[in-house]
Design a protein around this nucleic acid. Structure first.
Lengths: 185, 185
DNA sequence: GTCTATATGACGATAGAC
DNA sequence: GTCTATCGTCATATAGAC
């Protein structure tokens, strides 16, 4: 039940959208406020500084990460299938948050990079447990990283959502299976 | 024989260094000029605008790409071994240029993203020819992308050069060999 | 809680001396 | 070729009214 979305939440989403569409440079307080439908003063009531805005964004990203890992572990297609196919759809709230974080990671603030590294570690843990072998797990997570990377870097703005039913992903998953990855736990 | 490095070249290298260490936000004309040991006016004599500086940087990146592909094709260990091990050392001039380009890719300018995409395509071509299978080649290049991605995003500044003799890379290459990749042409 | 000013500083770029 | 001003613009942040 999506409730009317508080101003604070709208601000966070507006910031994320702008990071994806215009990069860190375009995600100014003015632009975020305009997009969220509040004034700059209104924005700064909720987040006292741009720093606080980044902090709030990363906190929400980490929450979404935990949710996604639960979904991943329960995925009927198996963890490996899930992690590859959802790299990167840009459809879900989590996908969007991840791309936005990637955009943020190379600017002034190292926090986004640290958050991404910790998410990466969580994935590696999960895949290692499912797959049994640490190096195979690493290869799989690296392929997932590569897919995210390409999504995040090429084609700012015009990033059309990946089709999870793309045949190329099917073939990629077949190849990955040769690594000795159990596609079901 | 490294000659005394023209001011123009020093500016380009300073820009690259600052992109790696401080991100796009930190790579201001002031900072670049200071690092290159020239004044802002001096910098703007060689590159009439920040746009021209980006252009010059990307041109040098593309030159380095062609050089690196020649080296890759002639590598005694084979193309696959070479591409994985050099993702990402941050030691060579080419590695540094690539990381800097990744930092640049999510800001205002789409040119860096376009350049990265074309480099990626060149790699995919080369690996596909060596390996025979397009999907296997894609998996390999994605792993390489993932390694670059992690280098570029985590740990701004403190990115210590990867050790190409790292045992973890050895194991990763063993796993990749299971994909059916010929490690030698 | 949300708004409209306004202060302050940084960045990109120009003009002109040497 | 390289320098020292200097200008215009834009971004963050503050102050204080409603």
């Amino acid at each position: 039940m999506p409730r009317p979305a508080s101003a604070r939440d709208r601000v966070l989403t507006a910031y994320e959208d702008l990071l994806i569409e215009s990069g860190e440079r375009g995600a100014t307080l003015d632009a975020v406020a305009a997009r969220a439908g509040v004034s700059k003063g209104g924005l700064l009531y909720h987040f006292g500084s741009k720093d606080a805005l980044v902090e709030g964004f990363i906190a929400r990203l980490m929450d979404l990460t935990e949710e996604d890992i639960d979904i991943m572990l329960a995925a009927p297609e198996g963890v490996v299938d899930y992690i590859i196919r959802t790299s990167v759809n840009e459809g879900t709230a989590f996908d969007r948050a991840l791309i936005a974080a990637a955009r943020l990671a190379q600017t002034a603030d190292p926090r986004a990079g640290v958050a991404l590294a910790s998410i990466h570690d969580r994935w590696l843990d999960v895949v290692t447990q499912v797959v049994g072998d640490a190096t195979v797990a690493r290869a799989i997570v690296l392929i997932s990283d590569g897919l995210y990377y390409n999504s995040a870097l090429m084609g700012m703005g015009a990033t059309e959502p990946n089709d999870p039913t793309d045949e190329r992903l099917d073939r990629l998953l077949e190849v990955i299976a040769r690594l000795g990855a159990a596609s079901r736990p």
